[in-house]
Amino acid sequence: MKNLVEINNITFRRGDRVIYDNISMNIQAGKTTAIMGPSGIGKTTMLRLIGGQLKPDSGDILFEGNSIPSMNRQDLFDCRKHMSMLFQSGALFTDMNVFDNVAFPLREHTKLSEQLIKIIVLLKLQAVGLRGASELFPSELSGGMARRAALARAIALDPKLVMYDEPFAGQDPISMGVLVKLIKELNDALNLTSVVVTHDVTEVLTIADYIYIIADKRVIGHGTSEEIRNSDSALVQQFLNGKADGPVPFHYPAPSLEESLF
């Protein structure tokens, strides 16, 4: 299977803090790949690296064989027309209604007539179940609806790659179910490649074709849902089963309690 994105031995630091230490991953074309891991280990950073918003300190990231970190701004913008990102907050433009938000990338990057744009936008909104909400403003949408509207905008230009940043965070069970269904169905129907960054284990195991678990600056486990479930790594099992203590300690590093108290 061809890889749409290849992450080769990247190291990334924020100041003195190492976020990734020589990490490698492959995102297969047409598949849903999940990147999981505890909060704060830099999962969103990985999406920003793939999108070229950040540059690794070393290593390379290839999109369709082209190196993202070494692209100039124009090439990077051309490349981004083939990828899109669903931000955790949705990041809808608050001064536009849902229709205009979805139409935005079409108006920016195509010369389609308004009539054709209207048809495309309504079809995208139909796909996420929000055709009836096209005239609403982002402030009038629930959290789940805002993410679905942002998803319609993300797929407006029919990108090859869609990156989802914590799509299930803070969602009620119904909204979560809708988003899980949408991610899976859109990936299959539009022949997209999806990268889902999340720590919602149950949901992602049902839709991901391949899973990477990141912790401690490296990939601690990867494989299909079945392989991950059967992993003998204590770290992977702690993450999957949500154990409070284990290789990832319950206590943040600190001097001993006696030393602190007395």
Partner: peptide
């Protein structure tokens, strides 16, 4: 993240 989303939309 509206500015970031603009960047990501090229």
């Amino acid at each position: 993240e509206q500015l970031s989303s603009l960047e990501m939309m090229a």
